[in-house]
Amino acid sequence: MSARRTRRPGGNAASGARLPVVLWPFAAVALLFVVVPVLALVQRAPWSDLTSLVTEPIVTDALRLSIVSASVATLVSLVVGVPLAWVLARATFTGRSFVRALVILPMVLPPVVGGAALLFAFGRRGLVGEAVYDQTGFVLPFSIWGVIAANTFVAMPFLVVTVESGLRSVDARYEEAAATLGASRWMIFRRITLPNVAPAIVAGAALCWARALGEFGATVTFAGNLQGRTQTMPLAVFLALESNREAAIALSLVLIVVSLAVLVPLRDRWLR
């Protein structure tokens, strides 16, 4: 403590540490397990037709829809998921562990079942959706809102879980210190809590976005599939598999490239 540190705490101290040699082969196995299938996909790709395939309207429509819906779903998850994570991490109430289990339910539920559940809840004959439909004529399924809803349902837990664990690992005493200085709860949340968990929020948002981008089961079950309206990349890939395997591979590669293009800089910037 007496040494004057100019280095940021938690900075690069760890990356210079010597790793136990025994970890390397295991890490390599893990990496190869992910990389080899991707390489196999690349190797099967129809490189000569790739440009014409990926500029077809069905692809560009699906890509646009995927990016927009995954991004909006991430935004929605941030707005309501971060407060939920905060409640789970900081509030004490009976049945909290039960609520925590509920939150991660969409992660264990087969997405198709999740989609059906959404249908029974928010469809126009659904638990909640019926009243909305009767009052306003608004139907959530078969529209981009349905896609966003399905994406949010499946992907939000990734954000909530990440941010909650982030909140648990930051020192809550800083919040107490701020309170002794007269800061209101809202100011503490804004000025202390949020900046402290920013890395976890970014990590959670990235996970959430990636999961939403790849979402298939809940989307198709809840929102349906129509080019330009509800057909996202994974749906297009699935249907292409039925008719044209090469196109399906090309679409998958596009999905991979787009997600890497977004996630790699994000990780570099925020997740040292």
């Binding site: 059906a116 249908l119 469809g123 126009r124 004959r125 659904g126 349906g224 599939n225 749906l235 039925e242």
Partner: peptide
């Protein structure tokens, strides 16, 4: 002008059955 083109019969029937 369909509102959805389901990837399989099961998915289509689920939505009709639910009244959606």
């Amino acid at each position: 002008a369909p509102d959805t083109e389901e990837p399989d019969v099961r998915a289509l029937l689920t939505k009709i059955d639910a009244g959606e």
